[in-house]
Write a protein that binds this DNA or RNA. Sequence first.
DNA 1: ACCCCGGCTGAACGGGTGTTTAGTCTGTTG
DNA 2: CAACAGACTAAACACCCGTTCAGCCGGGGT
Lengths: 228, 228
Amino acid sequence: MPTPDGSTRGRILDAAMLRFARSGFGASVRSIAADAGVSAALVIHHFGSKDKLHEATDEYVLTWIREVKRQSIGLAAGGNLLQVLAAADQYAPLVGYVLRSLQAGGAVGREFTEHMIADAQEYTSEAVREGVLRPSRDEAARVRYLVYSSLGAMLLSVTLDPPRDPEDVSAAMRRFMDELYLPMLELFTEGFLTTRRMLDDYLLYVPDPPAGAQDPADGTPTHDEEEP
Amino acid sequence: MPTPDGSTRGRILDAAMLRFARSGFGASVRSIAADAGVSAALVIHHFGSKDKLHEATDEYVLTWIREVKRQSIGLAAGGNLLQVLAAADQYAPLVGYVLRSLQAGGAVGREFTEHMIADAQEYTSEAVREGVLRPSRDEAARVRYLVYSSLGAMLLSVTLDPPRDPEDVSAAMRRFMDELYLPMLELFTEGFLTTRRMLDDYLLYVPDPPAGAQDPADGTPTHDEEEP
DNA sequence: ACCCCGGCTGAACGGGTGTTTAGTCTGTTG
DNA sequence: CAACAGACTAAACACCCGTTCAGCCGGGGT
């Protein structure tokens, strides 16, 4: 855990992360300073301004996330990094911060989802090669859709029905999973439409998946890809 | 459209809706007053406080939504009310307001999703009866999952990658649909797992869907459906 | 010994906030 | 006409915000 050295600057950074996660990015400099046991002026002295502090906290959280990710490669298979994080209560502040960033549209949220998409890209392409996942007509779009919908559903769930103690976001996520894991799994293994009509109609109407897809795997919209 | 009478109170309500949609609920009373062409004091005079104004605007938006919904029953089939709304540019402010509410976790967001879930409940149960949708082991959970994930994905998409003019949220939603409609349709008709292992394991491990499910369709969690 | 420099603070500044107050209009009612 | 009522406003109030300022400490270099 990259909790910085015991330096005052580090304590401020830690306090900022916690406060931002708990109260959102509107939290006042004074409240962060109080949490860190210093004066508000010192916060500005070290970081220049509140915006700079926000940026520094973003960077701090991002390096932490990268480290966690590096350590738990494979564990997070399937792109469920958020759930891996939530499972370990020590990462609760991290999760809270990420959710706030997704909510506010900040840099952390964007980078977090893009990294998640990139990772999922790898996992799924490997899974397709192994035959446990059906190939898609547009792998990149599929991965993006899956990450957006799972992340978005989780975010919406904890936003509309937040935990009493904003600290305990992991409990809310666990509840979410308990409630909705079954329909998710059902959908993933069986779909829910009984007819191919809608899909075929769409493919007929818009036969071309985005030509500039960053995954050079497929060129043809037909659904038999490379068959070694 | 329940845009209220030309009364000043109505103009303030309208301005509040627009400003809240455009700038979020942190928008100042003075800015709303300026938009409506009145003094800030008058806003308080009419509504008592900013919180009360927020509540009144929520209520105003909700009655508008209910009306639109009543008028376009059937059109919004499948629970894609948001997209129906977005398609008609006249509703752009409504959509913006709803998205802000989903983002902030307000009353409108909660009621909006719950109504959407209730509607989707009806649509899907009818579709299951007609045979175009597979039955689920837990219809209520499935509907909730689908609404959460589609709404959440859309929300996340416009949050992380917002339109330049906050007014033009419908364009962002259209872009979202253009990009991700294919994988969505794919997933819905085919799923993406090639094996039933994960689902069967889960059903074995947690064999009971919530006992109090309001849909008495199926009681047995065993998978004696089609295809061995 | 000096000085200086960086961590650090309390107090203040300037600006924005929601809300209150006092008062001015205008139209209605007795 | 006088009196009241309600829409409406400019100004002020009290507070919170991010930031600045002047100055206090304690330790290291010359």
